[in-house]
Design a protein around this nucleic acid. Structure first.
Length: 539
RNA sequence: GCGCCCGUAGCUCAAUCGGAUAGAGCAACAGCCUUCUAAGCUGUAGGUUACUGGUUCGAUUCCAGUCGGGCGUACCA
C-alpha cells in the first residue's frame, strides 16, 4: 500500500514540478486521521517557501487514486495528507493471512544474511538467577525476531570454565565435601554458599565416600562442579525454550594461540605496552577514554578484555553480517573498551550491535528482593519460573524497553487477576480457544476455512474491519521490532490486538448456528494464527 | 569528581526519522452477565512530559545547563 501511494504521490509531485522527494508515511494515532498519513507537504514547505497546506492541496489536486484501494484523502492539521484505506482492501487481507498460516508475519527482508547472537554466557559456577532473566528473554525474542525477518541465526553461549571463579567453585565444593566428613571444616570466605554446592558435594561423597579426604584435587572438584552447574543452566534454558547452537569455550582461544597472536598484533600496532610486569592497552583520549587498561595482569593472567577482543575478532572472521551481544548495564563501559581494541586492530566493528539492558529491581508486593551471587538467598530463575510460569516470565522481562529500569513485581506476576497484564493476552487466547471448541461442536458441516473465499466478502462489520486492520499490521510490527531489536514493541502490538479482539468478541456472537456460520469461523482461525505467531515469538 | 543510561497520569510503562488533541494497563468513579470464559466490555476523571533556556512551521523526542535516580569508574567478569 505504501508502495502504491509512493508511486502515485511521486507522479503528482512531478506534475507540480518537483522531481524527487523523500516520502514518509506514518500510522496516525487516531482513527479519524485515517490509516496512513504523509507529511511531505511540511517537508517541502521550507524548500518551496510556500505554506504546507497550499502544497498539500496542490498534491491532492494532481493525485489520481484508485477508489478501490483508497476511499478518501484529506488534508488536515498543519498540512498532513491523510489516506483512508478502503474496507475492501482489508477484506482481501484475510485470505492472505489464512494462506500464510503459522508463518504469517514472516518476511524475507534479510534473506541470505547471517546473524550471530550471543547472550546469557554465564560461567558454570551456579544456577541462573533472576538477574540473568532479562537478558535470557531478550535474547530469545530478538533471535526469533531476526529469524522471522529472514536472518539465518546462530545462537551462541560464551563461557569460561577456567580461572578464578571456577577455582572458587572447586574450593567451595571441596569444603562442603569435607564438611560431610568433618562439620568443623572451614568454608572459604568468598565461597559459593548456594545449596547446589552441597548437592554436588553429596553426590561426590555418595560415589567416592571419604577417599578424597584431605587431598584437594582442584581439577576433579572443578570438573564435577562444572558438570553439575552446566546441567542446571541447560535445564533452565530448556524450560524456557532457549536453544543455543554453539557453546563457545573461552579456553579454546588459549589453546589455538589466538590470545597470544592478539597480544602480538596489539604490540605491533603500538596499542599495547609492558609496564610493571603487566601488559597495558593504550586508550586514546580522543576516543573518549581517560586511562589505559590492563589486559594481562602481572601474574600472567589476562583480564577479561583480551579474550573478549579475541572472541569478537573470531566472530567477525566467521563472516556474519550481523553480530549481536546482550549485556546488562553493569557492562556498559567495558564493551566499549573491547570494541575499541577490535576496531583499532583493523577489524570492522560496524556489524557488531551491542544491546545494553538496564538493571531489574525485583519485589514481592512491597518487599524488595535482593539477589546477590554470594548470598544463600539467591532467587533463581528456576524458582521464578516455578512461581509464575514460563509465559509470564518471558512476558514480564520483555514487556518494557531494554533501556529502562525494569520494576518486576513477582507478586503481581503470580496473581491470577486482571491486575496482571499477562492475563489480558492469555484471556484473549483462551477465548479464541473457546470459540474453536464450540465451532467444532456446532459447525461440523461448515465450509472448510482454507478454500472458501466467497464468505469473506461478508465481512462488513466495523469491529471486524478494525480487527483486520490490526491483524494486517502484524508483519510490519515484526519487521520494526526486529530492526530496532526491541521485542517490547511486539508486546504492545499484541495488547492492541487483544484489545480489538475483546471488543469484537463482546459485540459479536461468532458461532451462531442460526446465522451465516463459517465467516465467523474464518475470522476465528485468522485470529488464532496470529496468536500462534505470538507464541512463536514469545515462548 | 568523571562516563553511560533514565526521569512522562496516584502506580507500572508506551509514544515509528522531530509530527496532529502525549496513549495503555492498574488504582478511582458510573454502567453492562438467561448469550462462544465478566481474567471481559462501555463511559468518566486523571498531565506545565523533573526544571530552565535554545534550535524550528512543529520538541516527550535534538542541543546546553540545573536537580533527582540507576550502573560503571579494578592487575573482577
Amino acid at each position: 500500500m505504501k508502495k502504491y501511494l509512493t508511486t502515485e504521490i511521486n507522479s503528482a509531485l512531478k506534475k507540480i514540478g518537483i522531481e524527487s522527494a523523500d516520502l514518509q508515511f506514518d500510522k496516525p494515532k487516531e482513527e479519524k486521521f485515517g490509516d496512513l498519513s504523509a507529511n511531505i507537504a511540511m517537508m517541502l514547505a521550507k524548500e518551496l517557501k510556500l505554506p504546507p497546506r497550499k502544497i498539500a492541496q496542490d498534491i491532492l489536486d494532481n493525485l489520481q487514486i484508485d477508489p478501490a484501494k483508497i476511499s478518501k484523502v484529506e488534508i488536515a492539521g498543519a498540512g498532513f495528507l491523510n489516506f483512508f484505506i478502503s474496507d475492501n482492501y482489508y477484506r482481501d487481507v484475510l485470505p492472505l493471512i489464512m494462506e500464510a498460516g503459522n508463518d504469517y508475519g514472516r518476511s524475507d527482508l534479510n534473506k541470505g544474511r547471517t546473524a550471530n547472537l550471543e547472550w546469557i554466557s554465564a560461567n558454570p559456577t551456579g544456577p541462573l538467577h533472576t538477574g540473568h532473566g532479562r537478558a535470557a528473554c531478550l535474547g530469545k525474542s530478538i533471535s526469533n525476531l531476526l529469524e522471522w525477518t529472514g536472518y539465518k541465526v546462530t545462537r551462541e553461549y560464551y563461557y569460561n570454565d577456567a580461572g578464578n571463579q571456577m577455582n572458587n567453585l572447586a574450593k567451595s565444593v571441596y569444603a562442603r565435601y569435607m564438611q560431610i566428613i568433618d562439620s568443623s571444616f572451614d568454608f572459604p570466605e568468598d565461597g559459593y554458599v548456594g545449596d547446589y554446592v552441597k548437592e554436588i558435594a553429596a553426590n561426590i561423597y555418595h560415589e567416592k565416600a571419604d577417599s578424597l579426604k584431605g587431598n584437594f584435587d582442584s581439577d576433579y572438584f572443578m570438573s564435577e562442579g562444572e558438570k553439575f552447574t552446566f546441567n542446571l543452566i541447560r535445564g533452565t534454558l530448556d524450560r524456557m525454550g532457549i536453544k543455543h547452537d554453539l557453546f563457545f569455550n573461552e579456553s579454546s582461544l588459549y589453546e589455538d594461540g589466538t590470545i597470544k597472536k592478539t597480544i602480538i598484533e596489539l604490540k605491533d600496532k603500538e596499542l599495547a605496552y609492558d609496564l610493571d610486569g603487566a601488559v597495558w592497552l593504550k586508550m586514546k583520549p580522543e576516543e573518549g577514554f581517560q586511562k589505559d587498561k590492563v589486559i594481562v595482569k602481572s601474574t600472567g593472567e589476562p583480564t577479561y578484555r583480551l579474550p573478549d577482543m579475541a572472541y569478537h575478532i573470531d566472530k567477525i572472521r566467521r563472516g556474519y553480517d550481523l553480530i549481536v551481544d546482550i549485556f546488562g548495564s553493569d557492562h556498559g563501559d567495558t564493551y566499549k573498551e573491547v570494541l575499541y581494541g577490535v576496531k583499532n586492530l583493523g577489524y570492522d566493528d560496524s556489524r557488531i550491535k551491542v544491546i545494553i539492558h538496564q538493571m531489574v529491581t525485583f519485589r514481592m508486593g512491597d518487599e524488595s528482593v535482593k539477589m546477590s551471587k554470594r548470598s544463600d538467598k539467591v532467587y533463581s530463575l528456576d524458582e521464578l519460573i516455578d512461581d509464575i510460569g514460563v509465559d509470564a516470565t518471558q512476558f514480564f522481562f520483555i514487556m518494557r524497553g531494554a533501556n529502562t529500569h525494569l520494576d518486576f513485581d513477582i507478586e503481581l506476576a503470580k496473581e491470577r487477576s486482571d491486575k496482571n497484564p499477562v492475563y489480558y493476552l492469555q484471556y484473549a487466547h483462551a477465548r479464541t480457544c473457546g470459540i474453536l471448541r464450540n465451532a467444532e461442536e456446532h459447525l461440523k458441516d461448515a465450509v472448510s476455512p482454507s478454500n472458501d473465499n466467497v464468505l469473506i466478502n461478508l465481512l462488513v462489520n466495523q469491529d471486524e474491519i478494525r480487527l483486520m486492520k490490526v491483524l494486517n499490521r502484524f508483519p510490519e510490527e515484526v519487521a520494526n521490532s526486529a530492526a530496532s531489536f526491541e521485542p517490547h514493541k511486539i508486546i504492545n502490538y499484541l495488547n492492541e490486538l487483544a484489545e480489538s479482539f475483546h471488543r469484537f468478541y463482546h459485540n459479536n456472537r461468532i458461532v451462531d448456528p442460526e446465522k451465516s456460520k463459517s465467516r465467523w469461523q474464518e475470522f476465528c482461525f485468522a485470529k488464532l494464527r496470529s496468536k500462534y505467531s505470538k507464541t512463536a515469538l514469545r515462548s
